[in-house]
Nucleic acid binder design. Structure first.
Lengths: 336, 336
DNA sequence: CTGAAAGCGCTTACAG
DNA sequence: CTGAAAGCGCTTACAG
């Protein structure tokens, strides 16, 4: 490995000057700077990260933990989310540390502690925020910068990105009622998740705006997977009073629900309307293509990282909360 | 931050002893060890990673770069793969560094160089291996340990995991011919990818085993996305001689191909058979459910990490090459 | 069994 | 504009 010493020795100058030249300080002679930069390049020198981190007392790394309910954690939302995090971090010369743990598990807690205490990361990105989320409380207590996708109900300052679910659901339910639907069901996720809370609230507001009386029998919950959506839809379709439309908390749930409907011999779009949320996954290519509230996942991830980096640097944020309006993509799954 | 000094001071012993007690050396008095461990725990002490890395000259971190062809990189294969990498790494107290870059791009090269030169990582996991893959050559040259999913055609020692595609395709084509198919098409990926190479070879062997003459008109290639599969299938279906079955390089491609078939008014399973490869994604819940060659992605990722960690530690490997047989899941998409 | 000390490779006040 | 030196927090030979 080439070190700063090697570069200094070759050039017969001090390591101080090499360091300053490379870091772009303006008190280095133009000539010296150019020579240093060229030589470092030629020698293939890159500063040792551990040494730099130790000295600067920051890791130039941000962390993210995948909420893996099961090992078979196949969800395209997360590949796109991580790609967005990685790209935005790299653009600022930060690294992205990724781990995986079941939400609200001992393993999750252990990772947070290890990262926080060992200062492995300068900050974290949190998603799948829960209503009472110990992670946010812990990070606040540790004074470790973080941003989150969706806010909690805790009395903590919220810095991050939020989807404008209320508006999205007004659009979606409006679309469904305009198609003549009034028995609209909801398949959510665990009720302690902020996305379930918001989407359920949005669902209720949407019904209210259309003057439809809510029916508790049309509300059920699953686990954000196709399998969960499939089972939940079977429950709904087994009831005496069946829904004519189902809105689902995410696309994977909707894909499972469509499967259940097909098995019943229902033609999705004609016999029953089904809609998702996310717009990632293969929603454009399901049979029939899935109506969904599309979110720019890659962009959201980038926004989160850029907010986090400003927090880490102690720079002022343009906005503490960014609100993203999901885009209603109407496809055949809700159009007779 | 609590440091080793704080612990030592509180206990009135040297930092040497604290370090040795915590690291489990056996030349520390049992009593001292217990005291140190308990106190460290109570004080919330975790060794500073940067200091440890600098001193040990290893980062206790492995790296992985997502092959993001486009920002909208939605592929459930990768969420599961990363979950597997993260879990296996964490089980050995290693961290996982993730970045993203388009395959074979300048950005990809830059990340490899930064990680290698700055010793950000002790080793890397490579996938989507290309036939002539500069990454493998570069890492070999840098003497940086790595493992790969699928081998290249380069004259380098291969350490990693390989899917037994030949056997998988014999099973799959056998299944299709037993259903009476003889006009079997193939939708692949970029031909410089090892998976395309292997799957195409497997496809040809499968045809040969069934004494079916290959027809170049039935072979086309896409980009591993649903959209690509959709376009490729349209091309195939627009031809004078249409396929009666299509095998696809991955599930996402197959999902797109099913979409194209449906648009043509073909009933998948009855009018045309379509099969995928991977078994992640929502293949069990597509309409109709998708026949696929299922791979244990999470397990494969774990195997790769464990092999890599042995390489990093200079320990002997049980096997340099692990061969995984994909599991043919026959579903309605290929059964009349 | 325990401790004093060196040193990993940087960055950055400080002096000139 | 440049350099000598301190020190970030560890681990580990070495001495006792």
């Amino acid at each position: 490995m080439t070190t700063i010493k090697d570069v200094a020795k070759l050039l017969n100058i001090s390591i101080t000057t090499v360091s300053r030249a490379l870091d772009g300080y303006d008190d280095v002679a133009q000539e010296t700077r150019e020579l240093v930069i060229r030589t470092a390049q030629e020698m293939g020198y890159t500063p040792n990260r551990a040494a730099r981190q130790l000295r600067k007392q920051r890791s130039e790394t941000i962390g993210y933990i995948l909420p893996t309910d099961k090992p078979q954690f196949a969800d395209a939302f997360y590949s796109e989310f991580i790609a967005g995090l990685g790209d935005a971090a790299a653009a600022s010369n930060f690294d992205l540390l990724v781990s995986a743990a079941p939400p609200d598990s001992a393993a999750e807690k252990a990772i947070y502690q290890r990262w926080a205490q060992g200062r492995k990361v300068d900050g974290l990105v949190v998603n799948r925020t829960r209503l009472q989320d110990w992670r946010l409380q812990y990070l606040s207590g540790q004074k470790l910068p973080f941003v989150s996708l969706e806010r909690s109900l805790l009395p903590l300052e919220f810095i991050g990105v939020e989807t404008d679910i209320a508006q999205g659901y007004l659009d979606l339910i409006g679309h469904l009622t305009s198609q003549g639907h009034s028995r609209i069901a909801y398949i959510g996720a665990a009720p302690d998740l902020k996305i379930d809370h918001d989407r359920y609230t949005g669902y209720r507001s949407g019904l209210e705006a259309a003057s439809i009386a809510p029916d508790p029998a049309l509300v059920t919950r699953a686990d954000l997977t196709p399998e969960g959506g499939y089972q939940a839809a079977i429950r709904l379709l087994n009831q005496a009073t069946q829904p004519s439309a189902i809105v689902c908390v995410n696309d994977l749930t909707a894909i499972g629900a469509m499967h259940a409907a097909h098995e019943r011999g229902l033609k999705v779009g004609r016999d029953i309307a089904i809609a998702g949320f996310d717009g990632v996954a293969d929603s454009a290519h399901t049979q029939p293509p899935l109506t969904t509230l599309d979110q720019p996942v890659y962009t959201i991830a980038g926004l989160l990282v850029n907010m986090l980096l400003k927090l880490i640097d102690g720079k002022p944020l343009d906005e503490h909360q960014v609100r993203i309006k999901p885009n209603l993509l109407i496809r055949a799954s809700t159009v007779g």
